[in-house]
């Protein structure tokens, strides 16, 4: 068995997963894991698939593209060797924090915050944004879920983020994830 990583992008509509999964099944492949997401009306999915020896990524990709031709999807099949990135393999002891940037979208916001996080050895585990426009600042929020290694100096990180907030006229706060979990999750 070989492994491939399949990415599926396109406008959300009924039948995307049915089409993709049926082709994989017909060609004796097995979906090992998958994650899908919706960005407004845009569909995106990543599938980790075991394929039989005689299958190649190229022919599987062609079969998937043909089957979904009418749906306007962008499907790519990558060969995949299970190599785990150093970060995940030798993951340092981390503390989970949430960074929230409140205020209107600014060009460069993600780049600047992400670069500072990178510089301080921090990994972003998830990034979500709500930009509804309008004057209510709480309707224009970007949320970074981050893993902060013990070695990171939180004071320096906070200072660097405060500088960005100041320059881009935003409110940026850095709070330990536990506060959100305890306040939001009453039943655990």
């Amino acid at each position: 068995m070989n492994k491939v990583l399949i990415s599926v992008l396109g406008n959300d509509q009924p039948g995307i997963l049915a089409t993709v999964a049926t082709v994989i099944n017909q060609r004796q492949g097995n979906i090992e894991n998958l994650s899908q997401t919706l960005l407004h009306t845009v569909f995106g999915a990543l599938l980790l698939v075991d394929i039989p020896e005689q299958e190649t990524p190229e022919s599987l990709q062609q079969a998937l593209q043909e089957a979904s031709a009418s749906m306007g999807l962008n499907i790519t099949v990558h060969p995949w060797h299970e190599q785990i990135a150093d970060w995940h393999q030798n993951k340092p002891e981390i503390q989970p924090y949430i960074i929230s940037a409140i205020g209107p979208d600014r060009q460069g916001l993600v780049a600047e915050v992400a670069s500072q996080l990178f510089k301080h050895g921090v990994n972003i585990s998830n990034l979500q944004a709500i930009f509804k426009g309008g004057k209510n600042p709480m309707e224009n929020v970007m949320v970074f879920e981050i893993d902060v290694p013990r070695a990171t100096n939180m004071d320096e990180l906070r200072e660097a983020l405060a500088e960005i907030a100041n320059r881009l006229d935003l409110e940026i706060s850095v709070q330990h994830r536990k506060i959100f979990e305890s306040v939001s999750t009453i039943l655990t």
Binding site: S100, I102, M138, S173, R177, I179, F180, V183, S184
Partner: peptide, 17 residues
């Protein structure tokens, strides 16, 4: 992954309320 709505409602409690 936390629900962004939960995060916002917690932020709101601290920031505005």
């Amino acid at each position: 992954m936390l629900n962004v709505k939960d995060i916002i409602s917690t932020l709101q409690m601290v920031r505005e309320e």
